[in-house]
Amino acid sequence: MANLLEFRNVTKTYTRGYFSEAGTTALADFSMTLKEDEPTIMTVAGESGSGKTTLAMLLLGFIDPTKGEILYKGKNINKLRGEDRLNYRREVQAVFQDPFAVFNPFYTVDHLLTVPIEKFKLAKSKADARNKMEEALSSVGLRPEDILGRFPHQLSGGQRQRINVARALLLKPKVLVADEPVSMVDASLRANILESLRSLHRDHGVSIIYITHDLTTAYHVANSIVVLYKGGVMEAGDIDNVIQKPQHPYTRLLIDSIPWPDVDRRWGSDGMMVKESETTDKGGKGCRFAARCPHVKDSCLHTPPPLYRVAQTQVASCVLYDNNPVLPATQLTDVLPV
């Protein structure tokens, strides 16, 4: 079984920050594998600053790991050359978190779609290119005649976000990193767009890494979930298990904070749990969540807890489960169903 994409003990530390002495570890010793013949939809969740976008940027080769390596089809992505590099560039695509950033203001939005079509020779003719563009736009609920020929500033936030999704649909990559792809569209359209991502997965065997804070939509589309906190994996596994029976105190907080569209189901009023983390890495040696955890005890403060297997397809990095067997961090993929 060939590995399509592999993270091997990847750590990313930013050192340019204001509190630069220690640096910020945005991702710590992360290992994960996507297999070529087992496409999956994996959700990466976690609060702001937990390292989700860092993971995406690493995967796309936009930034380099501080430690560890990332392999695409067995080769380090930083050492890809020639055809391998072109393939990787085409087969690994992203929908970025910020739909305002990716557009060049001087080109019409067509540019974002025509450039990859030309670069990767996706169309046989001009007419074919046009058809493909229109098809991709329609599947994200945009009217091609309304959108093509317009400049980015003439489109609403959700319209830009959907053009990014359309671009990904057009390219039919092998791996798609979607960083909050539907945060700016309404619930009804959200359902439609996630459905097109799902069919991209189902019909074209695309593996999708769905980065989001929206656990309700994650639950609906993904097979597995990895919950990050300050760059570390807090909990991971089958998405049904994790959402229905969260074990890690942080995951419980996340699930508790889901704003339900129900006026009779209020956010809990547990103020203590809702303190924002600092940007600075305090360099604490123990559990990353200790500063906010209501169950913290001495044994939490020495080393980051390993991943304890709390169910067949679920692990939690928390000493509350230290009677359970440990899963080595390098084998995380074992508990992520496809």
Binding site: G141, L142, A187, S188, A191, E195, T216, H220, P261
Partner: peptide, 22 residues
């Protein structure tokens, strides 16, 4: 329709978007 299309944890896999384009 908007209220009906809201996802919740008890209706997994059901996507109830509003048909048609704006």
């Amino acid at each position: 329709a908007l209220i009906k299309s809201l996802p919740n944890l008890s209706n997994k896999g059901v996507f109830q978007g509003i048909a048609g384009l704006a």
